[in-house]
């Protein structure tokens, strides 16, 4: 499985992390091409159902990224999101989903370099885990 490439869904808030990804691009910073990006208005928009659905439809990893605490364009969206993830992540681990499958980060619009690092780290982590099997729906 050496040439196996994971598929990773990156759900990015439009104000910070998506702009951070943009900056990484225009700065020509290299990062693994394994992510598929979905832009959301705010990390507070991310319903845990999005994450479960993505795992179900076969994504090997999921990255959710928003503005740093205190930087939210909508003042408190990422604080609310943080509470949600604080419960979702342990719960997913509790039922037996590998901890590294679903990851969260804060990346600002100025952190192109950091965005690349985050994506590299997530991709490496998921590569170590191998293809997702649990929760994947067979149709």
């Amino acid at each position: 499985m050496n040439d196996w490439q994971p598929k990773i869904l990156a759900i990015l808030c439009t104000w910070c992390s998506y702009a951070g990804a943009d900056l990484a691009g225009v700065s020509r910073i290299q990062y693994p091409p394994n992510i598929r990006v979905v832009k959301v208005p705010c990390s507070g928009r991310v319903d845990p159902l999005f994450i479960m659905k993505s795992l179900q439809s076969g994504y090997d990893g999921i990255l959710v990224s928003g503005c740093h605490p205190g930087d939210c364009h909508y003042m408190s969206g990422n604080f609310v999101a943080r509470r949600r993830f604080a419960v979702l992540k342990p719960l997913l681990e509790f039922i037996g989903i590998e901890p590294d499958r679903v990851q969260f980060s804060w990346v600002s619009a100025g952190e192109g370099e950091r965005f690349a690092q985050v994506v590299t780290k997530v991709t490496e982590d998921v590569k170590k885990l191998g293809p997702a099997k649990r929760l994947v729906k067979q149709v």
């Binding site: 509470r83 993830f85 342990p90 804060w106 780290k121």
Partner: peptide
Amino acid sequence: PAMSDFREGEKQDFIM
């Protein structure tokens, strides 16, 4: 209710 509330300095060990 816990999920409609937050504190700014909360523990965020699960964030990369």
